[in-house]
Nucleic acid binder design. Structure first.
Length: 836
RNA sequence: GCCCGAGUGGCGGAAUGGCAGACGCGGAGGACUCAAAAUCCUUUGUUCGAAAGGACGUGUGGGUUCGAGUCCCACCUCGGGCACCA
């Protein structure tokens, strides 16, 4: 019986955690350089204490980072807080405290939890986006984009969240609701600041091919950018006064354009119909009803098609016909040109509108099979029940008749370019990024409005534009706007009276460049060291949640490109490789405060310790998959760590020469070294779940070997290897046992173990003998035998021989060292053949 | 509706086209114990069989292949994204 101490994680862990921070164990020694591995995890938002999702992503990231260090890389692994944003303001309003107080208190709590969990961050580079030292440079970034015409102000229909009392970017509206407060978002015209993301639409799409990101994230970005190829062509009003361009992806259907539709607020319509009471009523109705309908059929895209016949017609340039013009709410002002040629034959929305308003539907594609009544009915305007959206052979289209859809498309575009009616063009779904917010816990937009000089950027020397200390957070509306004196300043250009912009920047602006600031977080002369940024970017490995697939990840890509073109960077992408972890859920649904189904990390840590929590999460599944907390077993993981503890202290402490049978020693060493090779590969693929399984196998193999009388160096080697490879996952227990086993120094300063190649080569192996793919025997043979030798051995096997007795072998497939398959046919068949 | 992704034991999950179910949880039986907990040992896909052994088995139906969980086609279910984008 051993009287070794029992495993008490909550006794050993806090001391080690504190020591690692005090010793600056995980700070990058010296300055980063081109060889430095830049590992980054999405910095947390300080909404309260750490939740399970944070623990998951940090556990994955930490395993990755610690192993890279053991492989000998210098790793830059910074941490900070994304600390501006609405929740702080909402909390301030609710509790009557300053957002800063709330934010910094939460940051301190999260920092303490991160340290307690032993995550190996470089604390010397810590930053908070709400510090003036940081947001000064966020304002600087804005000004660089402003100077380069990538930031501008315009009036537009924007998304307004009534709950948050601010506008939102397109990306922050989810299913018609505010991403944060879940309020229904209202459309209203406002003058706002934008970043010109659309000017990078094509590059944002193309350069996705250069980065190593999960395919699903790339797909989401591609869909969001939404490129479509087509043509822009101009329709003239029948009175010859206005030219109205439309965008279409189907120029081949131009002869089917039997009417024309404007977005309700289209300027040509507004000008011509402005005084018409029916138009005013229609606009009013559209605005009102869209609100109500949104609630009922939110995001189904199946709204009834409403329209207003306008008091003028349009001319189809190809047919010369006059066609009726409508305003309808199914045409959006924001996409394309805000007007369409309507082809009810080939477009489902136009089809529905035409049927509802009794408009002509003209056949322009011939039935795919004229002898098939169903195919004929599907292309006959009298009988068709939905638009015909497939490709085919063009009909009813003058000179283009008989061409295929693809050929007609090209021919029509050639002709409209030749005749000056339009041109080939590309449209994107992506809109410019609305960056101003009517909130006050964010960096003020560094602009001063002057009647004489227009919008003037605040001079760099005057940055940061500080938030005043005495804002009233309790009222409604924007505290910054309502502040009595703050906004009144002289114009930096003429010195006359000026007014500060009282909007602040979206928090996603803060987080779109923080990876640059980590390179020199304390430098107050420059936002980042430019040569180092050129050498280190893009970030080698980024880890974080898939919820940012579009928002943050798209914005950061845009900002890097814009800064590059403003001459401040050479990189074109912020993050080279991306690893998205899944969600931690409970009983199938997301954990959340409102649901009241939160499992707090410290509920687990207080019982089992941080190592157990970290390993439980990593063992539950591959990083990308969701983890349902109802399915995981911290007690099971704790049991294994306890077992490992006893095993190391009982069996691992004995060094010295090998004892026991040479076969037993050899078997153990081979087991260990094949696992070293496999676990190394698993870490490479970020498959920490299978890596842990193989660590358990080492532990099992060592226990079996000891039970079989093996001891000494081989067992010691097994335990040492296990501790080294478990160290990135369970840093505490491995550090403690490493010392207990008499090693000098920290386990985390050791080199990753290397497999001995001679121990990976087997002398014999088990091959599978199949007959027609069915396993008949498993036979032990020497490694490297050729097919003929294996066949002879297999035929000699009793079970195989029995299966081959009554049949003819027609073919034999052998895979060296793995398998042999006899393909046979029954003798009965052969006799029949022979008799005929 | 469109675009992705995924369907494997009671559960989480393993499997470069070549032994399906690694590893763990849970279960069953046993040892230790006055007893329990902890620990250790055995066992655990389904089914036929006393056993030896056999048959079946990766959502469904086809296909390719000597050989398919893995590749192809169609469908079903679940999850995610987009949603009047012309």
């Amino acid at each position: 019986m051993s009287d070794a101490p029992t495993y008490e994680p909550n006794v050993i862990e806090p001391g080690l955690a504190a020591r690692w921070v005090e010793d600056k164990s995980f700070e990058l020694q010296g300055e980063p350089d081109a060889e430095t591995y830049y590992a980054l995890t999405m910095f947390p938002y300080p909404s309260g204490d750490l939740h399970m999702g944070h623990v998951e992503i940090f556990s994955i990231h930490d395993a990755l980072v610690r192993q890279k260090r053991m492989l000998g890389r210098r790793v830059l692994n910074p941490i900070g807080w994304d600390a501006f944003g609405l929740p702080a303001e909402n909390a301030a309003k609710k509790r009557g405290i300053n957002p800063a107080t709330w934010t910094y208190a939460n940051i301190e709590q999260q920092a303490a939890s991160i340290k307690r969990l032993g995550f190996a961050f470089d604390w010397s580079r810590r930053l908070h986006t709400c510090d003036p030292e940081y947001y000064r440079w966020t304002q600087w970034v804005f000004l660089q984009l402003f100077a380069n015409d990538q930031a501008y102000r315009k009036e537009a229909m924007v998304n307004w969240c009534p709950g948050c009392e601010t506008v939102l970017a397109n990306e922050q509206v989810v299913g018609g609701r505010c991403e944060r407060s879940d309020d229904l978002v209202i459309r209203r015209p406002l003058t706002q600041w934008f970043f010109r993301t659309t000017s990078y639409a094509q590059e944002l799409l193309d350069s996705l091919d250069t980065i190593d990101w999960p395919e699903r994230v790339k797909t989401m970005q591609r869909n969001w950018i939404g490129r479509s190829e087509g043509a822009e062509l101009t329709f003239r009003t029948a009175d010859g006064v206005d030219d109205v361009p439309v965008f279409t992806t189907r120029p081949d259907t131009i002869f089917g354009a039997t009417y024309f539709v404007f977005a309700p607020e289209h300027p040509v319509v507004a000008r011509r119909m402005g005084n018409d009471p029916a138009y005013a009523a229609f606009i009013d109705e559209v605005n009102k009803r869209s609100e109500i309908e949104r609630q009922a059929t939110l995001g189904t895209g199946q709204t009834a098609k409403r329209g207003l016949r306008l008091n003028f017609d349009m001319v189809n340039p190809f047919t010369g016909e006059e066609i009726p013009a409508y305003a309808a709410d199914y045409v959006l002002m924001e996409y394309g040109t805000g007007a369409i040629m309507a082809v009810p034959f080939g477009d489902q929305r136009d089809f529905e509108f035409a049927r509802a308003h009794d408009l002509e539907i003209r056949a322009i594609i011939a039935p795919s099979d004229p002898s098939d009544p169903a195919a004929v009915a599907a292309t006959d305007p009298a009988t068709m029940t939905e638009a015909y959206t497939q490709y085919g052979v063009v009909t009813g289209s003058g000179d283009y008749d008989g061409l295929t859809t693809a050929d007609a498309k090209n021919a029509v575009m050639d002709d409209l370019e030749a005749k000056g009616w339009g041109r080939r063009t590309i449209n994107f779904r992506l809109r410019d990024w609305l960056i101003s917010r009517q909130r006050s816990w964010g960096p003020p937009v560094p602009i001063i409005h002057c009647e004489a000089c227009g919008h003037q950027g605040v001079p760099a020397a005057d940055l940061p534009v500080l938030l005043p200390e005495d804002l009233n957070w309790q009222g409604s509306g924007s505290p910054l706007f309502n502040h009595p004196t703050w906004k009144h300043v002289p114009c930096p250009s003429c010195g006359g009276p000026g007014i500060r912009e009282t909007d602040t920047l979206d928090t996603f602006v803060d987080s779109s460049w923080y990876f640059l600031r980590f390179l020199s977080p304390n430098d107050d002369h420059a936002p980042w060291p430019s040569s180092l940024a050129d050498a280190l970017l893009p970030v080698d490995q980024y880890t974080g949640g898939v919820e940012h697939a579009i928002l943050h990840l798209l914005y950061a890509r845009f900002v890097v490109k814009a800064l590059r073109d403003a001459g401040h960077l050479s990189a074109s992408e912020p993050f080279h490789a991306l690893l998205n972890q899944g969600q931690v859920i409970l009983n199938g649904s997301a954990m959340s405060k409102t649901r009241g189904n939160l499992v707090q990390p410290f509920e687990v840590i207080d019982v089992y310790g941080a190592d157990t929590l970290r390993a439980t999460i990593l063992f539950a599944s591959a990083p990308e998959d969701d983890i349902d907390w109802a399915d995981v077993s911290p007690s099971g993981m704790s049991k294994w760590l306890n077992k490992l503890w006893r095993q190391a202290l009982a069996d691992g402490v004995h060094g010295g020469p090998d004892s026991g049978s040479p076969e037993g020693v050899d078997k153990l060493r081979r087991a260990v070294h094949t696992r070293i090779a496999a676990i190394t590969e698993d870490f490479e693929r970020h498959k920490y779940n299978t890596a842990i399984a193989k660590l358990m196998e080492i532990s099992n193999a060592a226990r079996e070997a000891v039970a079989a009388g093996v001891g000494g160096a081989a067992v010691r080697e097994a335990i040492d290897s296990l501790l080294l490879m478990l160290a990135p996952i369970c840093p505490f227990i491995t550090e403690h046992l490493w010392t207990e086993l008499g090693h000098d120094g920290s386990v985390h300063q050791q080199r990753w173990p290397q497999a001995d190649p001679t121990l990976l080569v087997k002398s014999s192996t088990t091959i599978v003998a199949q007959v027609n793919g069915k396993i008949r025997a498993r036979i032990n043979v020497a490694v490297g035998l050729d097919a003929a030798a294996v066949e002879a051995i297999a035929r000699a096997d009793a079970a195989v021989a029995a299966s081959l007795a009554d049949v003819t072998v027609t073919n034999v497939f052998a895979v060296q060292d793995r398998l042999i398959n006899f393909v046979v046919s029954r003798n009965a068949d052969r006799r029949e053949d022979g008799q005929s």
